[in-house]
């Protein structure tokens, strides 16, 4: 991929994402401290001011690169078809689903479902039995270590409630 990128014009569109996030966030931050006491403002204005200045320098540099034809506003360094082929997009979606569902289904069941689904996506459906086995072992090990042994307050669901009842009442 690196060698491909060397042959292509620089993908400035992707590189602009972080500075744009930085500028938007800094301006939002300034809006929250505009009427605050000086103690809340001094450091933020100092750091934010430098950040805006550095971002401005970067934007100027990008314009110059675009004018010289050394870069494009493309996003090929950030989003490509490779992301679908490698399963990265699928992994991102399963990760989002994991965070959303863990509070409802509990740690063990959600971890099992997440591991199985994401490994199947990445393995393109190969070895489903092996994947289900290691996902089950990992999820159960996690439950045994974090919830049963260490008694951490990981999100509880059906499995945790059932196991607690079994272990308490025998």
């Amino acid at each position: 991929m690196a060698s491909d990128q060397n042959n292509q014009p620089r993908q400035i569109g992707g590189e602009l994402v972080i500075p744009i996030i930085a500028v938007v966030f800094t301006l939002y931050f300034f809006s929250t401290i505009w009427n605050s006491p000086w103690t809340a403002q001094v450091s933020a204005f100092l750091v934010g001011g430098v950040l805006l200045l550095v971002c401005a320098i970067f934007f100027v540099r990008c314009v110059m690169l675009l004018r010289r034809g050394e870069g494009t506003l493309g996003f090929a360094n950030l989003v490509t078809m490779e992301d679908i082929r490698t399963g990265r997009v699928g992994l991102l979606f399963t990760t989002i689903a994991y965070v959303v569902l863990i509070d409802r289904l509990g740690f063990t069941l959600t971890t099992f479902l997440f591991l199985t689904s994401s490994m199947l996506i990445l393995a393109k459906g190969r070895n489903p039995a092996f994947i289900a086995l290691i996902s089950g072992v990992m999820a159960l090990t996690g439950w045994a270590v974090f919830i049963w042994a260490f008694d951490t307050r990981f999100p509880h669901g059906l499995f945790e409630t059932a196991m607690k009842a079994v272990l308490t009442d025998g």
Binding site: F25, F29, T32, I33, P37, T39, A40, V47, V50, V54
Partner: peptide, 20 residues
Amino acid sequence: FLGLMIGSIGTDVVYATPRG
């Protein structure tokens, strides 16, 4: 500096004014 700005999120240490 983006990191420093993110690190500034929260209340200030003197008057506890919420920021960002």
